[in-house]
């Protein structure tokens, strides 16, 4: 459809304005806008059937749909929940898989860690244990949030749910990031050579970090979708 039509046709203008205010998964936004355009076209055809002129029928359909700002805010809340849900599913699946794959790879390529020569200090063992548990806990929390979100879908405001999802996603990724960073710093403090003793494991670590950063970006976008005023 040409730019001139988009500027003059009330339905196309409305859909374009709505689309410009929305943020979320491209497919979800596209689906919402397709459905909106469909609904407006149906409404204008109904008004045409009742005897209104075409321009008036299209304008009436837009007016009945509601003020674009108000509708965009309701749409945005749903888009934010959908984005949060998708991110939490990723976290629930990817975090434990990533941790297990890394540990399995280490056993396969490096074997059990050799002793440090002497027993590592208690603080190191604590960090190692905490790092081992973080991915599982973060994944579990993401899963519980997903279940809660489903149970509260009709009882809780969508904007609140979206913010809760974004908060959990950011906290989960932050905890995993902190766990990984802590164990690297702690290991470097005790025996820096251990960090680069196996090239395949260095590559695996790089992949792990890439996935964590990617999940972090998804979580940040969740927050952006949940807090934007459409």
């Amino acid at each position: 459809m040409g730019a001139a039509v988009r500027e003059t046709d009330p339905i196309e203008r409305y859909v374009a304005e709505l689309g410009a205010r929305l943020q979320g998964s491209r497919k979800q936004v596209r689906d919402l806008l397709t459905e909106t355009r469909d609904s407006l076209t149906d409404a204008s055809e109904a008004h045409l059937g009742r005897g209104l002129a075409e321009e008036e029928a299209r304008q009436r359909a837009v007016e009945e749909f509601g003020p674009v700002r108000e509708i965009a805010n309701e749409y945005q809340a749903e888009l934010a929940v959908a984005y949060g849900t998708r991110t939490l599913i990723w976290l629930a699946i990817v975090l434990p898989l990533m941790h297990m794959a890394w540990e399995y790879g280490r056993l396969l390529l490096v074997g059990p860690w050799q002793d440090f020569g002497s027993m590592p200090p208690a603080w190191y063992l604590f960090i190692a244990k905490a790092n081992d548990l973080t991915s599982g806990i973060a994944s579990g929390v993401a899963l519980v949030t997903l279940i809660l979100g489903r149970l509260l879908a009709r009882r809780c405001d969508a904007k609140l749910l979206a913010r809760l999802g974004a908060g959990v996603a950011l906290t989960a990724v932050g905890a995993v990031l902190l766990g990984n960073l802590s164990i690297i710093v702690a290991t470097a403090h005790l025996d820096v050579a251990r960090l680069v003793q196996s090239l395949p494991m260095s590559v695996a670590s790089l992949v792990t970090w890439t996935v964590i950063v990617r999940l972090g970006l998804l979580a940040r976008r969740c927050l952006s979708c949940a807090t934007i005023v459409a």
Binding site: S39, E64, G66, E70, E74, Y75, E78, G149, R150, A158
Partner: peptide, 23 residues
């Protein structure tokens, strides 16, 4: 009711597992 408010409500019902949609 502004007709546009029906669509977010349908999404909410879909999230709750009370309706499903197909294209």
């Amino acid at each position: 009711l502004p007709t546009g408010t029906v669509y977010p409500a349908l999404r909410r019902l879909e999230r709750a597992g009370h309706v499903v949609s197909d294209w």
